[in-house]
Design a protein around this nucleic acid. Structure first.
Lengths: 341, 341
DNA sequence: TTCGATTTTGAATACGTATTCAAAATCGAA
DNA sequence: TTCGATTTTGAATACGTATTCAAAATCGAA
C-alpha cells in the first residue's frame, strides 16, 4: 500500500511537485488550466495531503491536548464534548489523555503531548504536587490552561469557579432548611479546587456558630464504590447527618445510591447537594440540587482562551485568569431537615 | 522560542546528529561514555524528541482515531474511557472526533484523521448512507473497525451486539409482566444497530400475536428534548402504553424524566427498559432495567482488534466480525402491568 | 514585431528525525 | 608492536511537504 505523494501527482499531471503544492494551498498565481489538471489527478488518485509532513515544515500541528481525570464522569464528558466540537470548528483536533486521576500519568501525558507537538494543553484536575512542573511549562512559553483547577502561583493560566463561594452557597441553603448536621464528601485534597470547597464548607459552618466535626468529612479518591460505602456507613450511624454536600454531581449520585439502598427517602430523610450541574442533574426523575459551574460557558471559554494563547504568542506575557461565579440551583434533593434524625 | 533539536544537542555534546539519534533509540553499540555525555546534554537542555518528524521517517504515528456520535452520552463516554486508557498502555494516542450524529461530519472526520495519518479508526454510529465510503476505505487496506454498528456488506470489520435479540429479550420480559401496549423509542433508522432493535421489537410482538401500532414507535434523533416531549405527549393519551422500550439508556433517562414530570410512578404506572447498561443504570436510585452490551468487553475488544489490524497488515485480508450476546438485566424500572391504564 | 512588465512555473532547499554505508577507532591474539 | 576483526561514529540521504529564488512564458503597448 504505497502512499500517494505530491511527487506522484506531479509526475502524472506533468508538472513539478511545487506546482502541486501550490494547488493544495490555493496559491493565486496559477493558470486555471494547470490547476484543473492537477486537481483532476488528485481526485483520480484519491490523494490526501500528509499533514504530518506539512506540520514539520509549517511548524504547526493544529492540534491541542486535553488531559482529563476521568472522561466517564459526566462533568468531564460534557466538558470534552463542548471543547472538541468547538475545536473542530476552528480546525483543531484534540488528543485526549485520561489520567484516571493518577499523578504519574499526568507527567507522562504532558510529555507525550509535547512530543506530539500539540500547540497547547487544557489540563483538568491538576494536583498541587505538580505546581512546579506546570509553572516551568508555562514559563517556557508553552500555552497551558488549567480548567476547573488552579495553582497557588501568579504566573499560570486558569479558568475556575469560585469554589469557596460555591460551597458556602450550598451550606447556607442547607442551614436555612434547618439542617444542623451536614456531612461533606470531598475529593482528594491535593486538588485545590475541591480543597477550596471543603474550606468554604468549614468557614460557612464556623461563621454560623457550628463546630467542625471531622468525622463528617470524607476525603476520598474519585471512586464511586468508596464513596458509596463510606456514605452507607455514615448513614447507618445513630447520629447520622441529615444533609450531605458532595464535591461533584457524580459523587452526589453515589450518595443518592447509598441512601436509596438504605431506604432513606430524599429529601424527606436526607438532603443532598452536588456540584457541577451536569445535564442529568436537571432530569426530573433525579432533580439534583447543585452548584452550577456554568459548564458550557467554562469549557468554551477555556478553549477560546487557549486558542488565543496559541495564536498570539507574543501577547502571552500576561496570564489569563478567569473566575466564574457559582450559582445555587435548587431542585428536589434538598428539603427541610427531618424533625429528628 | 526556538525549538531544541538533535542537531543542537549534538553540537553541545560534541558528537554528530546521528549519534544523538542513536542514543534516543537505545542503539546498543555505543560507548557508555558517549551515551552518558549525550544524555546529560539532553537533560540539561530539556530536549524532547519531535515525534512529528519521527513519524515522517518511520511512517508510523502511533495514533488512532475515535469517531463518536456524542461523547456526552454515557455509553460513548464509558466506551471512550476504556479505549483511551488501553490505548495509552499500548503507547498509542487517541484523536477524538465528535460528529454530533451529523452525517456530513462523519465524512469530514474521516478525511481529517486520514490526513493526520492515524493508523486506524474506530467508528461508532455509522449511518448506512456511508456504506460505500467505509467499504472503499476498508478495501484500500486501511484499518477501520465499526463499533456498536455494522453494515450490510461482507468485507468490513465490526463488533456489535445482536441487537435484534436484545430487543426481543426486552419485549419478552415486558410481555411476561402482562404489558400489552409497549411503545418503542428508537434512534434514527439510518443506524442499522438501532434499526435492528426496532425490527426485533416488531418481530417479537408479532410472534406473540400482537399487531404493530406505528403510533407507538418514535424514530428520533438522539435529542433529549425531542424524546422528552414525544414521551410526554404519548403518556398523556387516554390509551397510553404501560411500558416503553428505549433505544438506549440515555433515552430511557429522558423517558423517566417525562414520566416523572407527569407524576407517573415507575414501575407502578409505567415500565421502562433501556439499552446499553451504562454504569448509572445500576445506581439503586435509578435502577434501570436494561439490555447489557458488555461495554467494557466490547470496547476493549474493539481496541485490541484494531491494534491487531494495524500491526498485522498482511493478515488483514480476512475481516474481523464479532457478535456479542445481549443480556437482560432486570432492575427496578419494570414491574407488572397496571390493572388498567 | 519588439521589449519591458507581469504572470506562471520549476529546481533547490528546509523542516527534524532515523538509517545506510563507510570510515575511524579500538581490541585482542600472536 | 602488528594486523585482522570488531566496535563505534559520522556524512549523506530519505521521509513528504511548503517556499524561496530565479528562469521561462505570456502579455500589452508601441
Amino acid at each position: 500500500m504505497k502512499r500517494i505523494t505530491t511527487e506522484d501527482v506531479a509526475k502524472i499531471a506533468g508538472v513539478s511537485q511545487s506546482t502541486v503544492s501550490r494547488v493544495l494551498n490555493d496559491y493565486p498565481y496559477m493558470k486555471k488550466n494547470t490547476r484543473d489538471k492537477v486537481l483532476a489527478v488528485i481526485n483520480e488518485l484519491g490523494f490526501t495531503r500528509d499533514e504530518i509532513a506539512r506540520s514539520l515544515v509549517e511548524k504547526r500541528t493544529k492540534s491541542i491536548g486535553l488531559i482529563i481525570g476521568s472522561i466517564s464522569n459526566p462533568f468531564f464528558a460534557e466538558t470534552a464534548e463542548a471543547i472538541i466540537e468547538r475545536a473542530q470548528e476552528l480546525k483543531y483536533d484534540v488528543i485526549i489523555y485520561n489520567t484516571g486521576h493518577k499523578d504519574e500519568n499526568l507527567e507522562q501525558a504532558i510529555n507525550l503531548l509535547i512530543g506530539k507537538r500539540v500547540e497547547g494543553i487544557i489540563l483538568t484536575s491538576v494536583s498541587k504536587n505538580y505546581t512546579e512542573k506546570i509553572k516551568k511549562l508555562h514559563d517556557s512559553g508553552f500555552p497551558v490552561l488549567l480548567y476547573n483547577s488552579f495553582l497557588d502561583i501568579k504566573d499560570v493560566n486558569f479558568i475556575v469557579m469560585d469554589n469557596n463561594k460555591g460551597a458556602r452557597l450550598a451550606v447556607q441553603h442547607l442551614l436555612k432548611l434547618g439542617h444542623k448536621k451536614i456531612a461533606k464528601i470531598s475529593g482528594p485534597s491535593k486538588y485545590l479546587a475541591t480543597y477550596e470547597r471543603t474550606i468554604g464548607y468549614k468557614q460557612e459552618l464556623r461563621e454560623n456558630g457550628y463546630e467542625i466535626d471531622e468525622d463528617l468529612i470524607f476525603n476520598s479518591e474519585f471512586s464511586y464504590d468508596r464513596i458509596y460505602s463510606f456514605t452507607k456507613k455514615l448513614l447507618k450511624k445513630n447520629d447520622r447527618p441529615t444533609a450531605i454536600l458532595a464535591a461533584s454531581d457524580q459523587m452526589a449520585l453515589a450518595v443518592l445510591d447509598a441512601a436509596s439502598s438504605l431506604n432513606l427517602k430524599v429529601p424527606e430523610d436526607l438532603s443532598v447537594v452536588g456540584f457541577d450541574n451536569i445535564r442529568l442533574a436537571a432530569n426530573e426523575f433525579i432533580g439534583l440540587t447543585t452548584i452550577s459551574q456554568q459548564m458550557d460557558h467554562m469549557s468554551l471559554t477555556a478553549l477560546e482562551k487557549l486558542i488565543y494563547l496559541i495564536e498570539n504568542k507574543e501577547a502571552s506575557s500576561s496570564s489569563i485568569q478567569v473566575f466564574l461565579k457559582p450559582e445555587l440551583i435548587v431542585r428536589k434533593t434538598t428539603g427541610p431537615a427531618p424533625i429528628q434524625a
